[in-house]
Nucleic acid binder design. Structure first.
Lengths: 220, 220
DNA sequence: ATCCATGTGTAGCTTTGGCTACAGATTCCG
DNA sequence: CGGAATCTGTAGCCAAAGCTACACATGGAT
């Protein structure tokens, strides 16, 4: 995936729109771990991830982080869209999770496309809707689940096929919005119960079923 | 405000769209305190509040509630829109807060309007965006604020001009997602510090400034 | 006048989670 | 090989918040 025009929603654009898009879009590449948008920043365009992954998170008092969601290749950063349409300031932080290429469509170009292209209208609504659901789910979790449950969920979601989760305790803590020590404690408990096995920079799952029951049974 | 066609976004519709809207829309009236949408329900249309107020909340383990936001006259329930466009199940509960009249536009009608009417497209995006920001703000709060801060915020937001908040402790608890006892304890503390005065079914604010500092200074 | 429903005020106990402070382990690099 | 950086494992303490259990107050209804 090398060009924004290769992305599904941009395939069926009219000739004019296509030229507008091609002329206005800028592609950036960022190294892993770079902060590319900060809270309160004035966002200038719609961001589409071409390669790599972006992590959107909010910053809690005391410097803790909590991951809200990821933006994968082919997806767009809705918060940016959002800021775009409302002239609001961006309400969170965005970092690259790995080396990432991003296409930025300037605000006025995107708005023009939105006005005339049904596919862009659908894409926009679709993307916003998806975000709303992700946020609702996240909110439910934060509200109602213990950290142990949230950790179990995280491990299940981030496990490779063979049940290995390549995250440090500090990273896990960031994702679920707590501190390293608490994660260590939780991992110690899960490990004592035989559900997982801890190692440097990674955790191995031994009983996914029990974990998913623990997490609240969203997953098989 | 008696008819949906009186609402701003529906004013400039084409003749065809107007007929479609008028023909397809159904108006309901609900008494205060009725649950009109439950979580997991399949939502059939776009809800617009004509009179009264709807409260959208999520249900936490143990039967606690947490208010996400309100829908005022002229506004629409975005979650419903959302479910509509994604064929997803509604992710929260909706109750009437007072006696309320609601116009329901069936899904297929709304989708048809969205496809052809710029005003509806804008309205949809605008509404979704607003919701995203409300949810982000709520998430930040839940994540990072103590219940005392959240209570202070609630009191400030819900106070009448003369500084009276007409809510029972149970209702306050529902709004901020905790239990009655905890609210009583918090009120006791605030009251001991002279910031408020408690009474049956109401609280009187004595020092808004101190409260807003406490809440984190979002408000004057 | 009494009773009942609703609302408020307290107290004590427990769990969860945050903070501090280390000690050991592993990896990387020079 | 040795040291620095990074990561993990524990322990203890404390505050926040949830749960249980009452006692008391208020207001409306009969």
């Amino acid at each position: 995936m090398t060009d924004i025009t290769a992305l599904e929603p941009f395939r069926r654009l009219s000739e004019t729109s296509h030229r507008l898009l091609a002329g206005g879009t800028v592609t950036h590449r960022f190294d892993a771990g770079r902060t590319i948008i900060e809270k309160g920043q004035d966002v200038s365009g719609a961001y589409f991830v071409l390669e790599g992954r972006l992590r959107v998170f909010s910053l809690l008092p005391g410097g803790k982080e909590a991951t809200l969601y990821f933006i994968e290749p082919g997806e767009t950063c809705v918060l940016a869209l959002n800021s775009l349409f409302n002239d609001l300031l961006y309400p969170a932080w965005v970092q690259t999770d790995s080396d990432t290429r991003v296409a930025v469509i300037p605000g006025r170009v995107y708005r023009a496309l939105f006005a005339t292209e049904p596919d862009i209208q659908d894409l926009t609504v679709q993307t916003l809707s998806t975000l709303v659901f992700r946020l609702m789910a996240e909110l439910d979790q934060v509200h109602g689940q213990t950290l142990e449950q949230r950790l179990a969920g995280l491990l299940l979601v981030r496990a490779s096929g063979r049940g290995v989760v390549r995250l440090t305790q500090q990273e896990m803590a960031s994702h679920i919005g707590t501190t390293r020590e608490v994660v260590a404690r939780l991992i110690g408990r899960l490990s004592a119960r035989g559900l997982i096995q801890s190692g440097r920079g990674a955790v191995t799952l031994h009983d996914r079923h029990a974990l998913s029951v623990l997490a609240g049974g969203q997953d098989g």
